[in-house]
């Protein structure tokens, strides 16, 4: 090693030539390392989206092959947007549920993060317990909450509820949306917590001390220092949360099947119903395309944020 660091002239010349040649082959090779992944992604994820768009212009019922698949232009979209009352309900429900879940888990996640952003005994254990819900599969979440907790007769929630003197409530029948929202918030608050906690830990002690020396109390410090510096982390947490929570499906599938009526029918659940119960490829595809447009707007905002920060991380 010490020989190489000697700047002897003949060796340095050789080094330059070899280095250039090596770099050139590497660069050509680099493209071949990248292409298989891009090709695979395009085939497996992009091609289906294109096909969804194609199908959405057709009238195609899987169970009636004699009808074939006829080109019908925009009529599937026209039906979904202007006539189909369930689709309209699904859009409203999706917006309501997503907003409530993102908002609820953001508030809870921030509180959790503030509690954890201190030094205290068993901090690691507390943190581990608090992130656990995020790993629970949605169907287990729903099955457990629906039965062990929200069952009107044997559920824990009603046991507590009646012990403190209230009447028994069939939660999922009377407040189905609230039930779904609670399940999802339980799952997503840890996600928000993790991102915001990372943000809180990025705020340097010097900044806090400076604020304290200037006479800021805990409330002022939180409002003037913590919240503004957390800004980009909030943005990231909200956008990522929106992307995932818009796709909420397992909880609804298990806990309410979109009901009662269409109370908890969201766009993903309605697409599922249209394809699996009505076997209507055309309509389901049109709904899928509308869902893509919906998410696409949010995804575009998120992508801008992520590519803006992909070199230097979020710490600004």
């Amino acid at each position: 090693m010490s020989v190489r660091s000697e700047p002897t002239t003949p060796w340095a010349v050789g080094f330059g030539a070899r280095r250039l040649a090596a770099l050139r082959t590497q660069r050509a090779g680099a493209v071949f390392l990248l292409l298989p992944a891009l090709f695979y992604l395009a085939v497996m994820t992009q091609a289906p989206f294109v096909l969804t768009l194609w199908y959405s212009f057709h009238n195609w019922i899987l169970t009636s092959p004699e009808l074939g698949h006829r080109w019908v232009g925009l009529s599937n979209f026209r039906y979904a947007v202007t006539q189909d009352p369930i689709f309209r309900a699904a859009v409203v429900n999706t917006v309501e549920i997503t907003t409530a879940v993102v908002g609820g888990s953001l508030v809870l996640g921030l509180s959790f993060a503030l509690l954890l952003n201190r030094t205290f005994p068993l901090r690691g254990v507390a943190r581990s317990l608090m992130i656990a819900p995020f790993f629970v599969m949605p169907t287990v979440n729903a099955v457990v909450q629906k039965n062990l907790f929200l069952n009107p007769i044997f559920g824990l929630v009603n046991w507590v509820w009646t012990s403190i003197g209230f009447q028994r409530v069939d939660w999922l029948a009377v407040h189905p949306k609230l039930g779904i929202i609670t399940m999802a918030v339980w799952q997503w608050a840890p996600f928000m917590m993790l991102i915001l906690l990372a943000g809180l830990q990025g705020i340097s002690d010097e900044v806090r001390e400076a604020a304290r020396i200037d006479g800021a109390g805990p409330v002022t410090e939180f409002r003037r220092i913590t919240l503004p510096l957390l800004g980009p982390y909030f943005e990231l947490a909200v956008l990522l949360g929106l992307i995932y929570i818009l796709q909420l499906f397992g909880e609804i599938f298990v806990a309410t099947q979109g009901g009662p009526g269409t109370e908890t029918t969201t766009i993903p659940y309605y697409v599922y119903q249209t394809i699996s119960q009505a076997n209507d490829v055309g309509s389901a595809s049109a709904q899928g395309v509308l869902a893509i447009i919906f998410s696409g707007i949010i995804a575009a905002l998120l992508l801008r944020l992520l590519t803006r920060t992909f070199r230097r991380g979020l710490t600004s």
């Binding site: 994820t45 289906p48 499906f249 992508l303």
Partner: peptide, 14 residues
């Protein structure tokens, strides 16, 4: 980032 439901129908068919 695009929702999986957007790819679901062709996947079933194909």
């Amino acid at each position: 980032m695009l929702p999986a439901v957007g790819a679901l129908i062709p996947l079933i068919v194909i």
